[in-house]
Structures are given as structure tokens and as C-alpha cells.
Nucleic acid binder design. Structure first.
Lengths: 299, 299
DNA sequence: GCCTGTGATGCCGTACGTGCATCACCCCGG
DNA sequence: CCGGGGTGATGCACGTACGGCATCACAGGC
């Protein structure tokens, strides 16, 4: 044996000793361990020699623990219990029963697809802890690149290298405007009607893709929009619209409960589109918990 | 292999895996473990097979932990640290550096020999915890028999089977009496002078040996004592003497600080004798800590 | 007194952990 | 583009030590 680092015995010795230390009977312990009695005697003797202390007092009728044996048993029992539990723990981990996943999302994702996904995942994998954090698309992309999050729900913004993506939501936006707005009484609007209306958008850096689609839609309609305010997160734009500071774009899904001072109107003709994408790194390969989450989220 | 109960791997596997899991490099880890690299590869592969999970992702330039590997490492490290500490712990125990000893004593022992012994033992063996409890001789003898205490300081009371004993103190008693007593002005007293003086003793059941020696001393002196009160522990007798309720016997050593209302007078002629004995069971053999204590106490 | 039951010991086969040599593969540099 | 250094994996042969079987030494009991 070249050297047994730090620990001069093996688990076998401890398991055997625990049995004898509890039963105080070599033959019965050997039977319980499914080995022959001499092997057990040898193993215990080896352990005693390894730790440099007598662990058992052998009398002719039975065995009793020495103080050293009591101390060792006291130390060994929890250690063995812990080690014995490891395979099951790992099994639970690789099967996706337990684990934790760091997930980022945008406000739109939380307003649309995310709640249903979370509910279903939690129902099927209650042992997996989710760390959820709202952050803009651009931040999610760098976090994914750095491995800080396992997956993200964001809004696509051109190509996403090193990522797998799955399109979860794609909705033509409508317009949210104050009920006091002259166009608020029409059932649908066209972009070109809104040339003079000031718009509340968000900083382009936060989701350049959508931002550019908004401008493209205006261009297609032949008008140039007036950008009055920028705000983030997008949902807060409702407050500005409500305050009469302008209109904003919104997907129908996120315009569900609205204050009475604002109105949501679909667009006919060109319209910007909101997209929610689930993205995760191509490598390393997702662990079991993440794989299960991705499967449910993509369903 | 007949069956490896509960735990499908050996400490060797865990030690090896910990090294690789920390260094993330097979060759360097093998060198640090003083084994060849192939042996390490095999051992880790065996562990992975045993726990049913890939623990390391082998890439061509280095190694990285899988989630399962991280979890296992997290579990294994404290376990190995605990197990590695065991030999030293046992060594400390058998060498008597640590441990604990249950000790019983009587008030007289605490008033005489015990403080010096405790001080010296604690100086030489600071890691040994002492559980001290005052209890009468008879209780100590049954506690020793039952193995409830490791040794006792008591007053011998006839033969003590199954015990080793060591006589630590043997003092002729004097008499403690109120200063108002007619005999208080004599420098020494004789028992026969005290025939009419009421005495405060203790229940005979608590130390029949001494009690009988008191009566024997009176008999030798040709008088019959008047037993007025019984009290326990003995030291409380001082209070009764101070209250003028009678006299009592006392060893010179325990009559050091006395209230001014009482006086201690040596006896000439027959006198009862106080004996303090250290006793401990003949078997089981004393452990290292107890042996060290006995050696110091007997010195 | 023998018989039963305890743990320890002698002997031997074999399984398995090990080292050496080599392989398969990839990155990197000329 | 091709070779050299470096990674971990694999084939093979050796030695050890673990385990089983048989037996020993010893104490208690109807």
C-alpha cells in the first residue's frame, strides 16, 4: 500500500466495527454483515491497530466497548449515516428531483408565459429550488455567457451565439393610450394615425431588437414617431400613459388588468411584435433539473 | 465481494475523488496522492459507477465538476475531515489528555484532601472534564458498584469488596463546642469529661464506620454519650454547635475557619478518627484519564 | 465431566488495486 | 499543415490482502 492519506482505515473497517460495537457479538455481527466471523475479527483488530487503541474488551461471554470504542462509535455512526445517504442524494439530483436553477426573466415574460411554466414545474418537481430574478434582455445575455444563470426568458435581439433558444410567445402589439386621447374611441388604430402622439418607450440598450422593430413598423407606416419618455421596466409605462404623458406599445397578453384611465387598442397594418424567448447555454449540457425545466417550459 | 453494506464505495475512492475534485487535474492529483495516474482514473470511474452519476466532465484540457460532483464533494469534505481527526482524538483519549471522570466526595474530603488534588490534576490534564458530586459514603459505595461513578472519596466503613482503596487522610478528631460551654476554657479535653454534653451527630446510615468509632471511643472512655441531634452534611453541625445545641466531633483540618461563637479543642486519650479513602472499582480497568487521576490523588 | 459457545489463529485461494506501458485525442506552435 | 507535448483512458501482469474454511484456546452450564 503506497500510503493511505490521512485516514489509516477503510470504510469497511468502520462498518464492521459499528456492527460489532452495537451488537457486542462477533458471530452475530458477522452473520448480519454476511461475512465469516474470522474476517470480522481480523478487520476489527486491524482497525484497532490502525487507530492505536483497543476498542473492544473481549471477554469469554460477550464483548464490551472500551472508552475509546465508545468515542469511536459516537463519531462513526453519524459519518456512516451521512455517507450512506449520498447515493440516494445523488440519484435525486441526477434524476432532477432536487437541485436549483437560476432563472432570469423580463417583465413581459412574467406577465405572460412564466407563471404557467413555474406552476407546472413546481407541481412536477417540488424539490427543485428556483432562483428567479427580473433583468433586461441584454443583462440576461451576458449572465448566460458567464454561466451566472441557467436560462433566461428574454426578448430576442438578433443572433444569440452559444445559446439554444425556443420561441415561446409572439404577439402583435397594440397601443395603450389615455382614454382622454382623441383616438381612444376607435376600436382599432393604425400607426400612421399616431404620428403626432408622443410615445413612452424604454432605453434601447435594454432590448434593441424590439426597439428597432418599433421604429421599423413606424417606418413601414411612413411616419416618424415622437419618443417622449423612456422608462424601465416596461410595465411602468402604464403609469405614464395613465398620467397622460403619451401612448405606448403593449402585447395583448400584458394588457389584461388596466386602470380605467387608459385604453388598449389593437393595431391594424404594421405593428411591432413582442417576442418572448427561452434561452440557455449550448454547453455545459443542462443538468437534470434544468433539462426538466426546459422541457416543461418548451411544451 | 460478499456485499458492501449500505455504502457502495470505500474511503479510498472518496479521498481520491476529493483530490481530483479540488485540483481538477488527474496527473497532479495522482502525484499528490502518491499513486499512478491510471489507478486514480480507475478509482474515480469506480466511484462514479458506484454512485450512479458522472462526477467529472473530462475535457481535453482539464476537468470540471458536474452538479453531482459538486454535491458529492460538498458532502465528502466534512466527512473526511471528521474521519481524519479520529485517530488523534482517540490518541488523546487513551493518553488521558481528554476524557471525563465522575467523582463523588464527602464534605470532609472536600474540606481536606480534594482541593489540592483537583488543582494539581487540572493543571496537568486540562482536557479532562470532572463531574463532581457530594454524596455520603454509603451512596458512593452503591454508585461505585453500579459503575455510576469512576471513583469516590469517602469514609471507610468496614471492608469494601470489588474496590481498590487508598487511605488519604487519618486524623484524630477533636471536639467543637460553644464558647459558652463550661469546658471551653480548657486547652484539651477528655471524652469522659463530656458525658453530660449533648452531641450533634449525623444519621448512622450515612457513615456507619465513623459513627461506630465515635461510640467505641466513648465506650473506651467509659461513658455513654448523649446524642441530641442528627444532621447532614456534617459541616452543618457547626451551625447547631454555634446555636448552643451541643458539641460535635471534627477533624482539625476541617476546623480551620470557625465562627467566634464556637471553639475547637483537641482530645487527649481515646478519640474517634476521621478517615478519607479514595476508592475505585477493581474492574473494569481504569481508563487513561482515571488512571492519571488516581495516580495524582494517591501521590 | 463433556458439550456448547465465545473470539482468535493458520492456511490458502482469489479478487482487485496497483504500476508500467501504451493508446486516443486535442491544443498549440513551427 | 503536420508534429510535439499534454490530457485522461485502457491493456496487461504482478503482488497484496481480504475472505472463507478449519481449527484452536478458553469459559460457562445442565
Amino acid at each position: 500500500m503506497p500510503r493511505e492519506f490521512q485516514i489509516p482505515f477503510e470504510l469497511r473497517h468502520l462498518v464492521y466495527f459499528r456492527e460489532v460495537g452495537q451488537r457486542l457479538h462477533f458471530r452475530k455481527s458477522a452473520e448480519a454483515l454476511a461475512i465469516a466471523q474470522p474476517a470480522l475479527s481480523r478487520a476489527v483488530a486491524q482497525l484497532e491497530s490502525a487507530v492505536g487503541a483497543r476498542l473492544l474488551n473481549r471477554t469469554r461471554r460477550g464483548v464490551e466497548l472500551t472508552p475509546a470504542g465508545r468515542l469511536l462509535l459516537e463519531r462513526v455512526e453519524p459519518a456512516l449515516r451521512g455517507l450512506a445517504a449520498i447515493p440516494a442524494e445523488l440519484k435525486a439530483l441526477v434524476s432532477g428531483e432536487v437541485g436549483h436553477i437560476r432563472i432570469a426573466f423580463t417583465g413581459l415574460a412574467m406577465a405572460t408565459v412564466l407563471p404557467g411554466i413555474l406552476r407546472e414545474f413546481h407541481r412536477r418537481h417540488p424539490g427543485v429550488r428556483l432562483e428567479l430574478s427580473e433583468s433586461p434582455t441584454a443583462s440576461q445575455l451576458t449572465a448566460l455567457e458567464a454561466g451566472e444563470i441557467a436560462c433566461g426568458f428574454f426578448h430576442p435581439d438578433g443572433p444569440t451565439p452559444h445559446l439554444h433558444t425556443r420561441l415561446l410567445l409572439r404577439e402583435r402589439n397594440g397601443v395603450l393610450l389615455p382614454v382622454s386621447h382623441p383616438l381612444a374611441n376607435r376600436p382599432t388604430l393604425r400607426l400612421r394615425d399616431l404620428a403626432d402622439t408622443p410615445f413612452v418607450l424604454f432605453p434601447r440598450t435594454h432590448n434593441a431588437g424590439f426597439y428597432d422593430r418599433v421604429l421599423a413598423a413606424f417606418a413601414t407606416a411612413g411616419v416618424t414617431p415622437r419618443i417622449a419618455e423612456e422608462i424601465w421596466p416596461r410595465a411602468n409605462g402604464v403609469g405614464l400613459v395613465r398620467a397622460g404623458m403619451g401612448a405606448t406599445f403593449m402585447a395583448p397578453s400584458e394588457a389584461r388588468p388596466l386602470p380605467s384611465e387608459v385604453a388598449f387598442r389593437p393595431l391594424s397594418g404594421p405593428a411591432p411584435e413582442s417576442r418572448v424567448v427561452l434561452g440557455w447555454p449550448q454547453n455545459p449540457a443542462p443538468d437534470a433539473a434544468l433539462a426538466a425545466f426546459l422541457a416543461i417550459a418548451s411544451a
